[in-house]
Design a protein around this nucleic acid. Structure first.
Lengths: 300, 300
DNA sequence: ATAATGTCTTTTATCGTGAAAAAACATTTT
DNA sequence: AAAATGTTTTTTCACGATAAAAGACATTAT
């Protein structure tokens, strides 16, 4: 097993959804753009669609024969990239207990446990190291620094610095900038979510990320934009294992976002600063209270 | 050739220097700590030292028989890590011209050109990506973003934010903190260098890095500390290819550092801020003037 | 009994290999 | 002739294998 065909399977699944909408599929290059894969993969997909009787394929003509059934789809778990699989596996071990700071990480063991090659694990760890949770000892093992209170504080310190700056840059953007329309759209989504927060509170995470990324992008600084990956990763996994008061948390956050948006639209730097600080403060507080006390970082 | 023994060769070379100082070598574990390698490697080193008649080795006794000659040392280029080799090779291509922004980077081609496996190149690129100069297209090639004016501006923006904060944290450190002694030592080195700047100006880089790292460490924030790696990398390579006005540049910088150090020692936050800003401003200016104008980033 | 040396086992670093996917080139269709 | 399809080549991704290096265990010396 040298390389899984998850790119094909994922694109195939997404391709199935196109069948509902049209009576015949567009050209191969067009499909490639639509699904974000190469023509090679598109042709593999079309070949299978023909095989399973979904379409009749002859050169340019790709006629839809029937609507896709649930069993036409590849199972979800087969569409994940290896690095997603490794990441999930690793994060589960890290957050779902038993991961002490200072612990050493064994590439070979991890690889065996997850059932993948060592190369993939190595590459994952290298990529993951930028999150500041692990560190490599020169030609030796990796060391886990732990998801500690210190980590959360260091993370939020940078986050606050970056976001305050980005928010100020955002407010200073000219009126004809496209971001204002994006902001309006996000505002509407926030309003909608606020109204139905009782049932849809779990949809907030995704909205939250889009909102903050929009703001960070105004900094026009790749280091600031990229740093949001660290924040997003931490929030994503952390709140997956910590659902305490999720509804209340998100309800408060939506309200703060709306105030923050209003401040941005006022373009009054003072108001922006206040609203931003208020939101960041409660975000930090939420994160910190969810980390057990007394957990001290063990540094060499 | 599955793995070069550069760890051994480098440790061996460093080990040779120990022979000048003593008549007999310490125990194997002690040597391991001294040279930063495992006992396995120490024993390989001792075996060779015995073979070449440098020492007489019998269990605990490791008597020095003769002083090492120049030809006892392994050639410098054999002591480099693969990633160092790849990095140098890559940076030469990047900085020494011909590297347009938007250009695509081919792992296989790079690997062939340097004469290493693709895995090592891949791992290097992943590690290197945190410097913000390259970017990966999802399951496809890497794209060079280029060492442009925009890059330099984004880099210095973060640098200034981080250093101002670190400097303030430094000045606020209690009098009994060990850093003040470190600062005194660095001050002495600066004074010494300032006196002999005419001949030793090329030694400034190394001192510069140590000084700024000391300050950044005061932030107690891993993201700030780690970010200095980006700065150090850029400065290291950039000034290796750009020696224009090196002496003048460094002369000014030494003076600014001394003022900066004095400000820190005064523990007056206003003075620290002023001195720090002044130095950072001239550092930015120096970096920017060395980048050709009109070179625009090509973004998708 | 502590700390060294001697020996054996495990892990890391790197390569070559092969399938998946992308990209390039050639041919046909509109 | 522009854009599609058909075909071939190249590149990326991931694995298992192997030597270097680290680490663990057993034995011996002080």
């Amino acid at each position: 097993m040298s390389k899984s065909n998850n790119v094909y399977k994922d694109a195939y699944n997404r391709g199935l959804r196109l069948l509902d909408e049209t009576k015949s599929l567009p050209s191969e290059p067009e499909l490639g753009v639509l699904l974000g894969v190469s023509r090679t993969t598109i042709r593999t997909i079309l070949a299978r669609m023909e095989e399973t009787g979904l379409i009749a394929w002859n050169k340019r003509s790709k006629t839809v024969l029937r609507a896709p059934r649930p069993d036409d789809f590849f199972p979800e778990e087969e569409t994940d990239t290896l690095s997603q699989i490794i990441e999930r596996s690793f994060m589960r071990r890290l957050l779902a207990g038993g991961a002490e700071a200072g612990m050493q990480i064994n590439e070979l063991e991890l690889a065996r446990e997850i059932g993948v090659g060592t190369t993939s694990v190595r590459e994952f760890l290298i990529r993951f190291s930028r999150f500041g949770l692990i560190e490599k000892r020169r030609n030796s093992h990796w060391v886990l620094k732990g998801f500690t209170r210190a980590f959360a504080l260091e993370l939020t310190e940078i986050r606050e610095m970056f976001e305050l700056r980005s928010a100020a840059a955002f407010a200073a953007l000219p009126q004809d900038s496209a971001v204002w329309a994006d902001l309006d759209l996000l505002e509407d989504e926030h309003r909608l979510l606020a109204r139905e927060i009782a049932t849809r509170f779990n949809e907030f995470s995704e909205l939250d990320e889009r909102f903050h990324r929009l703001i960070h992008r105004a900094s026009h600084n790749r280091f600031i934009v990229d740093f949001y990956d660290v924040i997003a990763m931490i929030f994503h996994y952390h709140y997956q294992w910590n659902k305490a008061q999720e509804r209340e948390r998100n309800e408060v956050a939506v309200t703060e976002h709306l105030a923050y948006i209003a401040a941005l639209k006022s373009r009054d730097l003072g108001k922006v600063d206040t609203a931003c600080r208020k939101h960041l403060k409660s975000a930090r507080h939420t994160l910190l209270t969810s980390i057990p006390e007394g957990q001290q970082p063990q540094q060499a």
